[in-house]
Amino acid sequence: MTVSRRNFLKLMGLAAGTLAVGRVQAHTGGSDTAEGGFGMLTDISLCIGCRSCEQACHDINAMPEPDEPFTDPGVFKKYRRMTEKTYTVVNKFNSVYKEGLPVYTKIQCMHCQDPACVSACLVGALQKTKEGPVLWDSWKCMGCRYCMIACPFEVPAYEYHKGIEPRVMKCTMCYPLVKQGGIPACASVCPVEAIKFGPKKELLGYARERIKQHPDRYINHIYGEHEVGGTDWIYIAPQDFATMGFLSLSPEAPPRLTEAIQHGVFKYFIPPVLLFGVLGLTMFLTKNNGGEQNDSHHTSLGDGGGPHVKGAVKK
């Protein structure tokens, strides 16, 4: 696994940069709604790698046929990622503490509280719902794929081989089911209850309690509690997350920096209007500049001089 690298310095840079750009404003959106929203918890110590969740996800979302059947344990030979054909995958890693035994991790969209994809999308095709799931709207999407650039977890996949109506593909936390009071398909089929669905707050409390009660079974880290500003899908695990393909991410949500820059540059449109004013004033004050070399001609636009402003402002 060559997952994590060169991150320390970059994080240093990120932190420094944030300071430099200025105080990041408290944002609206994401975390306001996360308070009462739902979340998911994956307990990696319980997962047995049966891939029922993959199958259930495939069925409920009417996904295309997978390349390998869901019963094929051969898929564990290599590390897999989500694709346009699957919203979630289970990977196998070696246990750090129990020699020769595996650990399994299910990955999918993390449903960030302050999602970079939502901040990036120029037409608002990605939205954080008040229930928690981050959803993609086919009607609005232009297909620019900036959401894929922005996602720190590298989750969204794209239907590159469709000329018409290609889709951004990612987990919806079974929003249609959740909205009707149901629970996501993966959570409902998991035979060992490694995937839990519920109010995010309760899940966090439960996760903390588990870690406290079984310090021998869990490391003291709830993945997603703080990463990129917090995610609504969280994990507890028996070993360090970096050993299982999870990225080490800072608690700062990526949109905090970009939005601070954007809103700084365009605050109430003052900077652009100011620039317009300064340029206009400069134009007015310098209008007699170099006039002596031009007096013989340049009295109209049609002089070969270009769109001649001087003649316009004078008179």
Binding site: S119, A120, C121, L122, V123, G124, A125, K140, C141, M142, G143, C144, R145, Y146, Y158, E159, Y160, K162, E165, P166, P255, T258, E259, I261, Q262, H263, F266
Partner: peptide, 28 residues
């Protein structure tokens, strides 16, 4: 841009104020 957009036929969405997303640098 038009050629690179997956849904190139939706490029006019940029002109719909209801879809404007001011947090996006790409929107700007």
């Amino acid at each position: 841009v038009f050629t690179d957009l997956g849904k190139y036929y939706n490029i006019w969405h940029l002109m719909l104020p209801s879809m404007w997303q001011f947090n996006s640098a790409l929107f700007e």
